[in-house]
Amino acid sequence: MPPVLSKPTEQPMETTVNTTTEGRPDFISIRDFSFFYGKKQALFDISLDIPERQVTAFIGPSGCGKSTLLRNLNRMNDLIDGIRHSGDIVVNGRSIYDPHIEVISLRKRVGMVFQKSNPFPKSIYENVVYPLRVSGQNKKSVLDETVERSLQGAALWDEVKDRLHESGLSLSGGQMQRLCIARAIANRPEILLMDEPCSALDPIATVKVEELIRELKQEFTIVIVTHNMQQATRCSDRTAFFYLGKLVEFDETPKIFSNPAQKQTEDYITGRFG
């Protein structure tokens, strides 16, 4: 049996704020990471460095473990019974499995957008400020400012600014997903995880969300899972191709799509399987 307990990293805490526009190339560093649902191994020895303030896309046939890896980045998989892992995930120099770090504080630094949009049955306003409210922030001026900034960030402000107190469920599918994005960025996280955010959207809404992703990378480190190869080319800087729980290839997006190093990658992007 492989060792399952994560060791706290020996690395010193990185506290320097990146001043270069480039950002830290190993902002999220996944090291020899394996993951098990009970007896079933879903990820095999993944090692991957995700750069700061860029868009990294995970592609691969369904069931290959993209979501599993993504959901490990904010420890969302902790909810599932019988899981275990080996290896480590280090964000900005610090292991997310560090016993001194609380899951809640990790999740506050990592926003997440889900495949199926999941606004709360609350008003648009309350949906957006939810992350602030659960952090104990109830000051009206701060909340108001956050609502405007986040909805503008999610390109939804103009459409909903006159009906902020209507239910979030009264929006259209595309608007709901952008509302979820606004919610995910409300508390100014460092990382934004998106699990097939456009799979349930119509083409127009998809275009809007893609534009949004390109804008948001100025501020956030974005990891996006997608089924759609065009989407990966359109909005990501780097692409990781997974197959059967293993990382096959990880490179600059143009390189992956024009000149993949691996035969499997080429087969996949040319549509020979998947």
Binding site: N74, M76, L79, I104, S105, R107, K108, V110, G111, M112, F114, K116, N118, P119, F120, P121, Y130, P131, R133, V134, S135, C180, R183, A184, N187
Partner: peptide, 25 residues
């Protein structure tokens, strides 16, 4: 729905906050 819980937890809510603000209503 599971999505509600995950949505709330991903916002940094604790389990009790999720129950109290999302699940119970």
């Amino acid at each position: 729905p599971r999505g509600m819980r995950e949505g709330s937890l991903s916002c940094g809510a604790s389990k009790w906050q999720t129950i109290q603000r999302i699940i119970l209503p």
